[in-house]
Design a protein around this nucleic acid. Structure first.
Lengths: 353, 353
DNA sequence: CTGAAAGCGCTTACAG
DNA sequence: CTGAAAGCGCTTACAG
């Protein structure tokens, strides 16, 4: 293995102290222009790269941010979601010359201690936590500990936390509006997400609110868990009902469940969208690919990751200065994407306001 | 922000030196059982977590591994692929109490210097490089530098590199065998992947080899780039040919292109699988969801990530001992997954040998 | 203005 | 056997 080049090596080559070399590379005024140039050249020639450990130890800053993936989430939320968030984080982190650490909980049992370990060990200067359950004590503890954390999603019970999210209630209302207003659907079924997550509650709330607004009498709700299988199961249950009372529209709390639902409907010979309109939520990749394409709400996961990370760097920097108390929650706009599953034209995918 | 607890704090609480406390926590024999217990208790009470920077600086080891994502790849390869690899890496890294760093190249221009920076700065002890182009000089340089690196994929031109991959040639041959033997297809089209990646070359090679084995006279090849759009474009071009010479089977080098191809075929009124059999490659998530489902080869991306990381830790450890020269290349088995797009029964998804 | 020490937190090799 | 220094690589605050 190649011996790594230290600042001392660079300094020795030029004939200055390593302190001087450090300042030279930092472009410090007090080092003469000539010396600075010499040091820079020596560093280049030797292939010097500062040791992250040395720098971190001295500056008390790791120049890294962590994405915390709760152990339950890999299954509950899709791979695609995390990758979008990660992409957004990378963009922001690159802009700050910081590394991105992905922290998955090793064991399902001992749970969230891992969160705090990462933070207390100062491996990362702060963390992004996404898709945490409402009653996740570890997240609560992490936020309460005062370590820099930005949450993705809505956490009304964690009022002090900094977060980035969308308006799930309003977005779901928009979907229902569309089904009622454009496609004349009135017997709607909602298949919920996990109800221990705020998104699950909010999307259900949006569904019920819009149903109420439109005076829909025959609405039903089945609890799902965001998995393809649970979407399929919900439709199975639905089809077991009286034929004349079958819903003419299904609002799935995410696209995965809609995929499972579509499969069951197809096998049962129920035509989508002729007999039943279907809508999903997320648009992380699947909805575009099915036949028909799934009308859905596009969640800007990548932008959420990017903005959350920007906010996180604000927090980290604020610890040195103390310009705290910017806005606590950032809400991003979403778009409804119209495809074939609701009854719109599948070929010309359109974005509704 | 909470002041972080150091070893000195723990030591002070017990009344020993920090050196002794360090040894106590490490379970060192020379510290009495009583002291060890006292130190452990103090550490617990104070919530002590070792500083990763301090430890890394001292031990010359970061306890972290990096996943390097070449800038070109985010678009070329799917999000799902990286997430599978990342999941596998996390599993292995957790088992070694190591962090996972995701390193995306910031700028498209200056390119791969970022690779070496991460490594030379010792932020990570080693790196996994995946989906690198054949002529990627940066990867070559990284491997040549002697820093611990494990490649995912096949790199015949980098004979000394440690790598984990699958046999793309044989897998593609299996697909063709299936189309010919089971479904009687003989006029086959291959839509290639990117030909500056070994997988692209190997899958084409497998296609041509099998076509030759079966004595297929009317085969054609169109170059693609793994994107959905390029799959669609390839089929557009195919459909522009003489109707009586249209292929009766298409072998796409990945599922994304197959998705694009299916869309175009559907719009053109060509029935899949009745008129044309379609197969893809990867099975990272899309192929299961389309209608019909896409017959494909399941690439064990998660396992590749896990095993590559295990190999990487071997390399990192080998630098201290020197038990080098295990096997250079690990080849993992793949499965053909039969779905509806080739003509098999879509409902009972089967795995062929 | 500039040289060089001190110290971030840790662990091991050394001195007693 | 045990106490405490030395040093990993870095940068800033201090002494001259």
């Amino acid at each position: 293995m190649p011996k790594s080049v230290t600042l001392k090596d660079v300094a020795a080559k030029v004939g200055v102290t390593s302190a001087a070399a450090s300042m030279a590379l930092a472009g410090h005024e007090r080092i003469s222009e000539r010396t600075r140039a010499a040091v820079r050249q020596a560093a280049d020639e030797l292939g010097y790269v500062p040791s992250s450990a040395g720098r971190a130890l001295r500056s008390q800053r790791a120049d890294a941010v962590a994405l915390i993936v709760p152990n339950s989430s890999t299954h509950v939320f899709g791979h695609l979601y995390f990758m979008h968030v990660l992409t957004g984080m990378s963009t922001a982190a690159n802009a700050h010359d910081a590394q991105v650490i992905v922290s998955t909980n090793a064991d399902t049992t001992s749970g969230g201690v891992a969160y705090e370990r990462v933070m207390r060990s100062r491996t990362a200067d702060g963390a992004i936590v996404t898709s945490a359950a409402i009653d996740d004590d570890h997240v609560q503890a992490l936020v309460a500990s005062g370590l820099p954390v930005v949450l993705i999603g809505n956490y009304p019970h964690l009022a002090r936390a900094v977060s980035v999210g969308i308006d799930d209630v309003a977005a779901t209302e928009q979907l229902v509006d569309h089904l009622v207003t454009v496609h004349g659907r009135r017997r709607l079924l909602h298949v919920t997400g996990t109800l221990d997550h705020q998104t699950g509650l909010d999307r259900r709330e949006g569904f019920l609110r819009a149903a109420n607004t439109h005076g829909l009498a025959e609405v039903s709700v089945i609890e799902g868990d965001l998995s393809e299988a649970s979407g399929a199961a919900a439709v199975d249950r639905m089809l077991a009902g009286a034929p004349e009372e079958l819903p003419d529209g299904i609002v799935f709390a995410n696209d995965d469940m809609a995929v499972g639902g579509l499969r069951v409907l197809r096998r049962a010979g129920v035509r989508v969208p002729e007999d039943v309109s279907v809508v999903g939520f997320d648009d992380f990749g699947l909805a575009r690919v099915t036949t028909p394409g799934i009308t859905t709400v596009r969640v800007p996961a990548e932008e959420m990751g990017r903005i959350a990370t920007e906010r996180l760097f604000d927090l980290v920097d604020a610890r040195r200065t103390s310009a705290d108390d910017a806005e606590r929650h950032t809400e991003l706009p979403v778009e409804v994407v119209l495809r074939g599953s609701c009854g719109c034209d599948d070929d010309t995918e359109r974005l509704a306001t």
